[in-house]
Amino acid sequence: MGLVLMVAAIIVVQREMRHLHWADIRHALVGIPAATLWAGAGMTVLSYVVLSFYDWLAVRQIGRTMPFRRTAFAAFCSYVLSHNLGFSAISGAAVRFRLYGNWGLRPLEVAQIIAFCSATYLLGAAVLIGGVLLWEPEMVPVVGAHVPHLLLEAVGLLLWG
């Protein structure tokens, strides 16, 4: 499955980039202020640190203790694969099962960690999406231009609830 997805991704990227030239890409990147690029890199690192705390909290929630560096390693590997490959319920879970299983946790405990991390991630996404729907519903692609803003704001409040 992973090989099929990789080949499909290569084909899609090749088709999308067929009309782009390296000079155009370089020119577009040079147009981005360095401070913006550094801020983006910093926010990426911060995001992975926050995501690492989900695993650390999950391990504590099941009544176990583990050094943060281990849970951060498991979280980083899991999220990198699940965010890039998709199918997070399979790809990220498989990484967690392998790592936490090797570190002495039982399958049920690992399943609880996966459920906890999934729930915290979904709650965070609900807060973010709800905020966008409340404050800038017109920014939502396609839907923002065709659905009444009052309805989008109601969905945002529902997500926050």
Rank of each mutant, 00 (worst) to 15 (best):
A75C: 02
G92P: 00
H27E: 09
W22Y: 13
T120K: 08
G86M: 12
F116N: 05
L37T: 08
C77L: 15
T44N: 10
W56C: 03
V132S: 01
L128P: 02
R64C: 03
S118P: 04
V142D: 05
V13M: 13
V147N: 02
L151K: 09
A111N: 04
A8I: 12
T71R: 03
M1G: 15
G131F: 00
V142W: 10
H83Y: 13
S118T: 14
G86E: 11
D55A: 07
A28F: 08
V132R: 02
L123A: 14
L152I: 02
M6E: 12
R69S: 14
A115S: 07
W160L: 09
V155D: 02
S78T: 03
Y79D: 09
V147K: 02
S52M: 01
F68Y: 13
M66V: 05
E136G: 11
A154Y: 02
F116Q: 04
A23T: 13
R106T: 14
L151R: 08
I113Y: 02
G2I: 08
R106F: 13
A154D: 03
L108K: 15
A145P: 03
G101T: 12
E136R: 15
H19Q: 09
R60C: 13
V155A: 04
A35W: 13
G161D: 10
G124T: 05
F87K: 12
T120H: 06
A74G: 04
H21F: 12
S78G: 03
V95Y: 01
H146A: 08
T65C: 14
L159M: 02
A23S: 14
R26P: 01
Y79G: 03
I11H: 06
W103E: 05
G124S: 09
W56R: 04
A126D: 06
L29V: 10
A115R: 08
Y54C: 05
E109Q: 14
A75T: 01
G130H: 01
I90H: 10
P137V: 01
V147P: 00
L157S: 04
L29F: 13
A89V: 11
G101F: 09
G124C: 06
